[in-house]
């Protein structure tokens, strides 16, 4: 009788332990999802801002149709992207298009003085900052989740319930890509 109770107690304890691991995995996955939604909000906002920006710039930049089209194209690509990896790639392209656009803007002092354009630029800057700050939080959450999935013993539970690793959101900074680092040392 007593061995039966002991075995039963051990079994219950083991089950509770498994449930604990499973719950912590779910909690971490939700944290990743939540962090991603924070980024998603800002990405959407950026995609909404860009058509306005292009529209404002159009009147001033008759001769830069190619640059503007590139921005619009990159924006549409980014807006359609799904999945963390694809999104990150599309956003990198958009960053690049935008940075070459702002280089061209330097030649149009009238546009640079336009109140509407300045307001849009401020919004865009802020949104980009928010994305980069939110990206930090997302990648932290993703790393914690991935660690839990890979480490023993939680990797067994993760395998049984097929938890998938979260992708990191890495955007290549446009400035880093465009300007080669030169040192004379």
């Amino acid at each position: 009788m007593i061995p039966m109770i002991v075995i039963l107690a051990l079994l219950v304890a083991f089950l509770l332990w498994l449930i604990g691991i499973y719950n912590s995995l779910v909690r971490l996955r939700n944290a990743v999802k939540n962090a991603w939604s924070q980024i998603d909000v800002q990405l959407k906002r950026r995609h909404d801002l860009i058509p306005n920006l292009v529209e404002t710039a159009k009147g001033y930049m008759q001769h830069e149709r190619g640059t503007l089209e590139n921005v619009t194209k990159a924006r549409n690509l980014a807006a359609q992207a799904s999945g963390v990896g694809d999104q990150a790639k599309a956003e990198s392209g958009l960053n690049q298009a935008l940075s070459s656009f702002f280089v061209v803007v330097e030649n149009y002092p009238d546009l640079k003085a336009n109140q509407n354009f300045l307001a849009l630029q401020e919004e865009l800057t802020s949104t980009e900052n928010k994305i980069s700050f939110a990206r930090q939080a997302y990648n932290d959450a993703a790393m914690q989740f991935n660690n839990k999935i890979e480490m023993f013993p939680s990797n067994i539970v993760a395998g049984v319930f097929s938890f998938k690793q979260a992708e990191f959101f890495e955007i290549e900074e446009a400035a880093e890509r465009a300007v080669p680092k030169v040192s004379f040392s």
Binding site: Q38, E123, T125, S126, K130, F133, A134, Q136
Partner: peptide, 9 residues
């Protein structure tokens, strides 16, 4: 905007 950014950070 700056306040919002810092809140996110």
């Amino acid at each position: 905007n700056v306040v919002e950014e810092m809140c996110i950070a």
